[in-house]
């Protein structure tokens, strides 16, 4: 994916990315589990180099509640937390009874705060692992078609590249009768990817 000539094999790169997804999401899952006081499981993360034209397949045509966070400082990228609309509702009403993600008030804030905490734990795990500084913007809520939400991050990346690295992790709450699946999608910029590989593999 990176336009740079690199000695690292594609497999090794993807393994590093999966590990990053794992570390980040494990921290985020712990944070969510503390927040909700229940066990949250983590599916094995996927990291893929995907042509921009293929990121938004038919599986992204569903309605979701999502938070969008912009990542900057040593690395740059776009971070999305996506839940099915009804799962987001459950999440918020678990935290603060009688609120909803559509209320433009407390419920919306609660959902954004969950996004903030989960993105924060994901990102801080990553920054410790790589020993770099990463800042995150306050999250913005969007309730819309998943593909349209992710598209906003892809537009900016598409100025530089025709393919992107998509690191996805799925969180599962099994204690509930209804499964609650949440998803993180992290889209780093190509420059950031080069830095991540360099740092993860111990310099030049």
């Amino acid at each position: 994916m990176s336009p740079n000539k690199s000695s690292f094999s594609e497999d090794l790169r993807l393994d590093i990315l999966k590990e990053i997804g794992n570390i980040g999401a494990a921290h985020a899952a712990t944070a969510l589990s503390t927040l909700l006081n229940k066990r949250i499981d983590l599916k094995i993360p996927s990291a893929q180099v995907v042509p921009i034209s293929e990121v938004n397949g038919p599986n992204r045509d569903n309605n979701v509640a999502a938070t969008y966070t912009y990542i900057d400082c040593d690395i740059h990228g776009h971070f999305f937390m996506l839940f099915k609309e009804e799962h987001a509702e459950m999440l918020v009403s678990n935290m603060i009874p009688n609120t909803t993600i559509y209320d433009g008030g407390l419920g919306e804030s609660a959902f954004c705060e969950i996004g903030n905490i989960l993105c924060g734990s994901y990102i801080s795990a990553l920054s410790q692992f790589l020993n770099i500084t990463i800042h995150q913007s306050p999250p913005i809520l969007s309730i819309d078609i998943a593909a349209a939400i992710l598209g906003e991050g892809l537009i900016e990346l598409s100025m530089e590249t025709d393919s992107v690295i998509v690191i996805e992790t799925v969180l599962v709450d099994k204690t509930n009768h209804h499964q609650m699946n949440g998803e993180f999608v992290f889209l780093p910029t190509p420059d950031s990817m080069d830095l991540i590989f360099k740092l993860a593999l111990g310099g030049e």
Binding site: D61, D144, I145, A147, A148, L150, G151, I155
Partner: peptide, 12 residues
């Protein structure tokens, strides 16, 4: 006989 479909236009 065909149709064309695209998913999730935001600012696109």
């Amino acid at each position: 006989e065909q149709s064309l479909r695209t998913i999730g236009l935001g600012s696109c």
